[in-house]
Design a protein around this nucleic acid. Structure first.
Length: 423
RNA sequence: GGAGAGAUGCCUGAGAGGCCGAAAGGAACAGUUUGCUAAACUGUCGUACUGGUAACGGUACCGAGGGUUCGAAUCCCUCUCUCUCCGCCA
C-alpha cells in the first residue's frame, strides 16, 4: 500500500510511476485520494474537538457532583447530549471516508524503481545478463515429461488419482533428488547468512492482507473455508508476516530469513500448451529468501540476492539469464524485480525459476513493519526471492543432462542425492 | 470436544466507575559519579491520527467489536485467543 503522505508530496511522480505500471486512471485515483484525505482530516479535527468538549464537560460534572451542586450538574448533563449525537455522526462519517480512502488506496500498485524499463509485455523485459552454455542435445532428446516416464521418477497419473492434475507423485530417485535440492538450497542460504525458519503453510486472512495476496488475489489461493485459512502460494507470505506489527531496533537489521515450504497455487484459467509436465503445478516446493532492510540498503541487498540465486544456478551448471522486468510485467507490489530463467534444452525455451524483488515500503506499510531511529519510527523495506523453486530446475536438470547412459546429476548435488546418475 | 481461569505498556504486575495513558519493579536508553567485563544515583522510556514554524496541545487505543453511563481499563453482551484439568491423539 502506498503512503498518502508520499502521494501528496510527490503527486506528479506518483502519477508517472502508476502509468509506467500501466495502471489505468492514475490521475483520477490520485486526485480522489488527496480529496478524500483532506476530507478525512477535516472530519477528524471536528470530531476531536467535539470529543474534547464532552470530555471537559464530563470532568466538570464529576466535580459538581462531588461538590454536591446537583442542579448545575444536571444542566451540564443536558449539554452533553447534543455533543454526543454530533460526535456519533462525525464518527460515522469518518469511518466511511476512511474505508472509501482505503478502497482506492489498495487498488494502487507499487511505484516502479527508476531503472525499470518501459513496456507492457514479457517481450519488453530487459535481458541484463546471460551465463553458461546452451546445451546442444541430440535430435531425439526427450522433454522432461518423457524422461520422467522413461526412468519412472515422477508420476502424474498417480497424482491424478490421489488428488488431481498438477499434483505429481515423486518416486524413488525422483523423490530423493527433490529432497537433495531442498537441502542444497537451504544449506547455501544458511552459508549466505540467512536464518532458517519453518513457518506454517496455512495462513489466516490478516497474513494474506499483509503481503498483498488479499483482497485481489484470493482466487489464486486454496481456501480451507471451514476454518477460513488459506494454503500459502509462497513462503513469502508466512515469513514476511512474522514481522507484521513489529517495530525493530536498528541493531536487529538486516533481517535475513530463509525457509522451505511447499507452495500451493490454483492457477485458475492458466493451463495451456506451455504448461506441460513440471512447467506449472498446483503444488510445488520452494526455498524462499526474505530480507528486511533499512531503506538506504535495500537495493544493495537486492543485488546480493540476485547474485546468491545466480550462484545456485552456476553450481547446478545450468545456463541462465537474468531479466529486469518492465513496468507492465512486474507484480503489483514490486518496485524492482529480477527474474532468473534457465534454459530447458529439450523444450528449447527459457523457464522462469526465480523472481527476486524489492517491495520498498509497499508491504511494510500494510504490515506496519517499522524501525525506530532517534525516537521516530519509519517504515522498512522488504525483499524476497525464490532460491529456488524446484520443478523447473528439475526439468532443466533432467533435460540438459540426459545422455545415452542416463541422466547425470550435477556435481554439487551428488553429495546430497547419494547417486550421480539416474539410469 | 467438555470444564474452569485469564487477556493491561518491551517484560512482570497493580488498578475494581471520575484523581488512569495507566502504580511498582525489571529491562532498555541518556547523564553524573566511583580507577576499570560492574555498581550507585538522576532523568528518559507505548502506538497512531491530528493542530502548531516551534514551544506545546487535542483525540483514540488496557485482546477485538458492540452496549450502559454526563463519565469505562474498571459494569453488561458477543467474538477471538491463551493457560490449566479431562477426553482424543502424531
Amino acid at each position: 500500500m502506498l503512503q498518502i503522505q508520499q502521494i501528496k508530496e510527490n503527486k506528479e511522480a506518483t502519477i508517472a510511476g502508476l502509468k509506467k505500471k500501466h495502471f489505468k486512471n492514475a490521475e483520477e485515483a490520485v486526485e480522489q485520494i488527496i480529496a478524500l484525505d483532506d476530507k478525512r482530516r477535516e472530519t477528524q479535527n471536528e470530531l476531536d474537538s467535539t470529543l474534547a468538549k464532552s470530555n471537559a464537560l464530563a470532568k466538570e460534572i464529576g466535580g459538581l457532583m462531588k461538590a454536591g451542586k446537583k442542579e448545575e450538574a444536571e444542566a451540564a448533563k443536558a449539554e452533553t447530549s447534543t455533543l454526543k449525537t454530533r460526535s456519533k455522526e462525525l464518527d460515522e462519517t469518518l469511518k466511511s471516508i476512511e474505508s472509501e480512502l482505503y478502497e482506492v488506496l489498495v487498488t494502487l500498485p507499487n511505484l516502479p524503481h527508476s531503472s525499470v524499463p518501459e513496456g507492457k509485455t514479457p517481450e519488453e523485459n530487459e535481458v541484463i545478463l546471460e551465463n553458461g552454455t546452451i546445451p546442444t542435445l541430440a535430435e531425439d532428446a526427450l522433454a522432461h515429461w518423457d524422461l520422467i516416464k522413461k526412468y519412472d521418477i515422477i508420476d502424474f497419473e498417480l497424482g491424478n488419482k490421489i488428488t488431481g492434475a498438477g499434483f505429481p507423485v515423486y518416486k524413488g530417485k525422483g523423490a530423493r533428488i527433490q529432497r537433495a535440492l531442498i537441502n542444497f538450497f537451504l544449506d547455501e542460504a544458511i552459508a549466505a547468512g540467512y536464518a532458517e525458519v519453518q513457518p506454517p503453510i496455512l495462513i489466516n486472512k490478516d497474513s494474506g492482507f499483509g503481503t498483498g495476496q488479499l483482497p485481489d488475489k484470493d482466487g489464486q489461493m486454496y481456501h480451507a473455508t471451514v476454518d477460513d485459512l488459506y494454503l500459502i502460494p509462497t513462503a513469502e507470505v508466512p515469513i514476511t508476516n512474522l514481522y507484521r506489527d513489529v517495530i525493530l531496533q536498528e541493531a536487529e537489521l538486516p533481517v535475513k530469513n530463509a525457509g522451505y515450504t511447499p507452495c500451493f497455487r490454483r492457477e485458475a484459467g492458466s493451463w495451456g500448451a506451455h504448461v506441460r509436465g513440471l512447467n506449472r503445478l498446483h503444488q510445488f516446493d520452494k526455498v524462499e529468501i526474505v530480507r528486511i532492510e533499512k531503506p538506504e540498503n535495500s537495493y544493495a541487498a537486492l543485488e546480493e540476492m540476485s547474485l546468491h540465486v545466480q550462484g545456485l544456478l552456476q553450481k547446478l551448471e545450468l545456463p541462465y539469464r537474468v531479466l529486469r522486468l518492465c513496468g507492465g510485467d512486474m507484480s503489483f507490489t514490486s518496485a524492482l524485480t529480477y527474474d532468473m530463467e534457465v534454459f530447458s534444452g529439450a523444450q528449447k525455451r527459457w523457464l522462469e525459476v526465480s523472481s527476486v524483488s524489492n517491495f520498498e515500503t509497499y508491504q511494510a506499510n500494510r504490515l506496519k513493519l517499522r524501525m525506530k531511529t532517534e525516537g521516530k519510527s519509519q517504515l522498512l523495506h522488504t525483499l524476497n526471492g525464490s532460491a529456488l523453486a524446484l520443478p523447473r530446475i528439475l526439468a532443466a536438470i533432467l533435460e540438459n543432462n540426459q545422455t545415452p547412459e542416463g541422466i547425470r546429476i550435477p556435481k554439487a548435488l551428488v553429495p546430497y542425492c547419494g547417486f550421480d546418475i539416474i539410469a
